[in-house]
Amino acid sequence: MKQRTYELTISPTGEVEIHVDGFKGKGCLEAIKLFEQMVGETKDVRHTSGFYEPEEDVHLHSERHH
């Protein structure tokens, strides 16, 4: 299993900034989509150097546990 780490900052205006960590390649975009479902619309995305590393097989489950 791989550990993903997310750092979220909820500003006093309610805007949410998410730092997605532990991914290589575009797997981080799937993680951002997961948080989109919880919060709202993506206003801006900035990629760091890890975004351009080779792809890894990532599948995040968006369904809720019951």
Partner: peptide, 10 residues
Amino acid sequence: MSAVAVLTPI
């Protein structure tokens, strides 16, 4: 770290 996203709350 791979990305930073800013989300507008709904």
